[in-house]
């Protein structure tokens, strides 16, 4: 599972202060589809926005390891236990690689981890939802990793070289997450009534967050605004969402899952649901319909009032504080070594 970096993309109007000649060269490079490397000239606004985006993505990987991590001790077979551990471990690895990209843009990892746990920076919204059953693990790896892959494939077509390279390597690992998710969902839906019921309930919990995964509806003219003009993002939110629904809605229905519009309480539990009547294929466009997720809920969760925001940050904070002594003990070792011959 991985973060959509969309929410991290904000560019302020400071580009007006840049040297017009260099800015024009930069914009021309962007228009040509060239890649930017860490030492190339770039507008400060681009550097700042790229840092925010990579940092947000890294934060999302690190926090994204927590919800699924809850089930490592309870995985129902040795293979699933191994796979879930490896999957969560991969997410930590993604975070590590993305923090590196961010560090080269000018912020230390330690500062980023501290800003994350004190709430100064954000991570992806979907990790603020609860994971009450094993079937949620299956659903997260199918729907959320599936959504992450669709998003990250387009991010790998971006313009910032270090981020693009990292995204390519990350995607190679994501393939395992998605296959393992499919395998679990397929196994549960081929299983006992209890297993199929668990799977449907988990689907009801995760379909909404999966639709929200790509971020809120695009602003008009998004393709001309810096995030897309500078290829930090290459495809619009609504277009990604359309592709996602076209892929997953019919697959879910064929599996025997029913698509519901749900109402959740403050703990993220489903308290009411009804069939989503829009979840049908439009014969004219070929697109599958869906009911828009609750965007008020989305912004409420972003502001820190989701079901698990406090829990995730508390655990991340504990991890940082309890491990502080380890890093402290080995800091600056190399600097203290005698110079090489």
């Amino acid at each position: 599972m991985s973060g959509s970096a969309n929410e991290g993309v904000v560019v302020d109007p400071m580009i007006r202060e840049e040297d017009p000649q260099r800015l024009a060269e930069f914009e021309a490079k962007m228009a040509r589809g060239d890649l930017i490397e860490a030492d190339d000239w770039m507008p400060k606004a681009y550097r700042d926005a790229m840092l925010r985006m990579a940092e947000h993505h890294a934060n999302s990987e690190i926090v994204g390891a927590l919800p699924e991590g809850e089930w490592i001790t309870r995985a129902p077979s040795l293979r699933r236990k191994l796979a879930l551990t490896a999957k969560v471990q991969d997410e930590v690895g993604h975070g590590q690689m993305l923090y590196r990209v961010s560090q080269d843009l000018g912020k230390s990892r330690d500062d980023m981890l501290r800003d994350l746990i004190t709430g100064k920076t954000k991570y992806h919204n979907c990790f603020n939802y609860p994971v009450p059953t094993w079937a949620d693990i299956a659903m997260i790896q199918w729907l959320i990793d599936g959504a992450a892959i669709m998003n990250q494939k387009t991010l790998a077509d971006g313009a910032y070289g270090p981020y693009v390279r990292t995204m390519k390597r990350i995607n190679m690992e994501e393939a395992f997450h998605f296959r393992s998710g499919e395998d679990m969902v397929l196994t549960l839906m081929s299983g006992t009534p209890l297993q199929r019921g668990m799977c449907q309930e988990a689907f009801d919990r995760w379909w909404g967050p999966a639709l929200m995964f790509f971020g809120p509806p695009d602003k008009p003219g998004a393709e001309h605004l810096p995030p897309m003009r500078w290829r930090m993002k290459t495809v619009k939110n609504d277009e990604l969402r359309r592709r996602f629904v076209n892929r997953f809605a019919p697959a879910a229905i064929d599996l025997g899952l029913r698509i519901h519009v749900v109402e959740k309480d403050g703990h993220g539990s489903v308290i009411a649901k009804r069939p989503d009547e829009r979840a049908v294929r439009d014969a004219a466009t070929g697109d599958w319909g869906y009911t828009e997720p609750d965007w008020n809920e989305f912004f409420r969760v972003i502001r820190g009032h989701g079901p698990c925001n406090a829990e995730r940050l508390a655990l991340r904070r504990f991890s940082y504080e309890q491990g502080h002594w380890v890093q402290q003990a080995v800091l600056g070792r190399r600097a203290g070594l005698p110079p090489a011959a």
Binding site: I72, Q89, V92
Partner: peptide
């Protein structure tokens, strides 16, 4: 069970 929580990424 330490995965995601151990010191130093």
């Amino acid at each position: 069970d330490w995965t995601g929580l151990a010191p130093i990424l």
